[in-house]
Write a protein that binds this DNA or RNA. Structure first.
Length: 427
RNA sequence: GCGGCGAUCGCAUAGCCUGGCCAUUGCGUCGGAUUGCUAAUCCGAUGGGUCUUCCCACGGGGGUUCGAAUCCCCCUCGCCGCGCCA
């Protein structure tokens, strides 16, 4: 959410940003108009309260000096004042609610380096990493590999849970655990604190970190309790300090979280998403940084560097993509994606998303740091380190052998008890 | 789940019983002053708002009242005990 100061003092900045995104200004103008109305309504209400406070004081004084008649007279005068104030208060509150429900839907201001584009076709390549793997045989898709090696059981998962769930089995499951351990240790080595978060959140905290439409299309609600399954550990980690004033000496707060991630994937269809590429539950190792606004763009580059070094260590071929205006979404000001090469699909596909959300989440979460001029919103950043299901797909497809076995990335071999290749699962 | 107790400003606290001055004090932080000692001492500021002779804020919501931190009800969270439990 953008700060109200921006609407009041620098609305043209927001309008120019909307032009870049290709969306109309009407919501901005509406926020400004309702804000004006709200301020007037608030003023009348405050005048009423002031009158009441003065009267209450008058009564107290009168009683103290023993003048019961004076007290009774004032009381009679202000008898209906309470109702009037309540009405004015209600009006002001409904205006405020209306203003902010619109404001919540206005997207973050974009960084100036974000390329202009209507949709994902406008994204640009930032850099290319690793060597494209060459095969002297026809490489298989990960779907073929998991099936022939019995590493994933989709049918039985459908039976006990539903479609787009999976049982992960044998060596592939063991590799998944190795990936988690490797990524967590890697980030601990770069100064991150390891956190295991709650995997359910209440509505109030959740509204602070995500686009409102996600409640309809992404998150699972829990019946009968008013909770939501997290779509990523970014959400509990970022909202961890909500409603707090953070001592500047604690910044930057660098967190690495591991959690299962739950996504409804409403509207997702198609054969290209079969297997474990797009699923309702997967595990993700996530980086989160809460920082001083002056440092946030440096931290954004650091987060990307961590991903690049981590994915280089896994010895995979991928590109970094600079996400364009039309593909950005509501919360981020700038976003890089890592897209891994999938030989089976002959395409780069998204495996990492690295965002600077500037003060957008912090404003919603009332998450500030102390300055000599008062409190100011912090900046929040997040980046996938590894989403294990997708990393496994990339490893399987890029490291496959002709017989269907898969070479374990060198850095993970020690965590696989020295095992260098994934063998088929017997069960 | 049941019972008891609690929640006040960055942290810690007083005020609540018995409704009515400006919500107290300590620590921390920031600013200033001063002194030659890794810092001490003194002064000031330090919840939010439209930064203000004004309004709001004592976990959240409602009620009683001319007036609520204070009385009543509901909810949330925490602590203690009991129950259940990986």
């Amino acid at each position: 959410m953008l700060s109200m100061e921006l609407f009041r003092n620098d609305a043209d900045k927001i309008r120019a940003d909307h032009d870049k995104r290709g969306i109309p200004h009407d919501r901005i103008n509406r926020v400004i108009a309702i804000d004006e109305e709200w301020r007037n309504a608030l003023k009348s209400m405050e005048d009423g309260r002031r009158e009441r406070n003065l009267a209450a004081k008058g009564i107290a004084d009168a009683k103290k000096s023993g003048s019961k008649e004076d007290a009774d007279r004032i009381m009679a005068q202000v008898k209906d004042l309470g109702d009037r104030i309540a009405q004015l208060d209600e009006k002001a509150n409904s205006l405020l609610e209306e203003r902010d429900s619109i404001r919540m839907r206005i997207p973050n201001l974009l960084h100036e380096a974000v390329p202009i584009g209507a949709d994902e076709g406008g994204n640009t390549q930032h850099s290319l990493h690793g060597e494209k793997p060459q095969f002297d045989f026809e490489p298989k898709t990960h779907n073929e590999l998991i099936e022939m090696n019995k590493w994933v059981d989709l049918e039985r998962a459908a039976k006990v849970a539903g479609s787009r769930f999976f049982f992960l089995k044998g060596d592939l499951a063991r590799l998944e655990l190795a990936l988690q351990t490797y990524a967590v240790d890697f980030l601990i080595g770069r100064g991150f604190t390891f956190i295991q978060p709650p995997v359910m959140m209440n509505r109030d905290a959740y509204e602070g970190v995500t686009d409102l439409s996600d409640f309809e299309t992404v998150m699972y609600g829990i019946t009968p309790d008013p909770l939501y399954m997290i779509a990523t550990s970014e959400h509990p980690l970022t909202s961890m300090y909500m409603d707090e004033v953070i001592e500047p000496s604690l910044l930057p707060i660098k967190l690495v979280g591991v959690s299962p991630c739950f996504r409804r994937e409403v509207g997702a269809h198609g054969l290209s998403d079969r297997g474990i590429w797009r699923v309702h539950q997967f595990t993700k190792i996530e980086q989160v940084v809460i920082t001083h606004p002056d440092d946030s763009w440096d931290h954004h580059e650091d987060l990307l560097k961590n991903c690049v070094d981590l994915w280089d260590a896994l010895d995979l071929h991928y590109e970094v993509v600079n996400i364009c205006t039309g593909d950005m979404g509501t919360v981020a000001a700038r976003k890089y994606d890592l897209e891994a090469w999938l030989p089976g699909a002959e395409a780069f596909k998204e495996v990492v998303s690295c965002s600077n959300c500037t003060d957008y989440q912090a404003n919603r979460l009332r998450m500030r740091y102390r300055t000599s001029e008062g409190n100011a919103a912090v900046h929040t950043l997040n980046s996938t380190a590894v989403a294990t299901s997708r990393a496994l797909v990339a490893i399987m497809e890029q490291n496959q052998l002709e017989d269907g076995r898969v070479r374990v990335p060198k850095c993970l071999v020690p965590m696989m008890n020295g095992k260098t290749h994934l063998e088929p699962c017997q069960l």
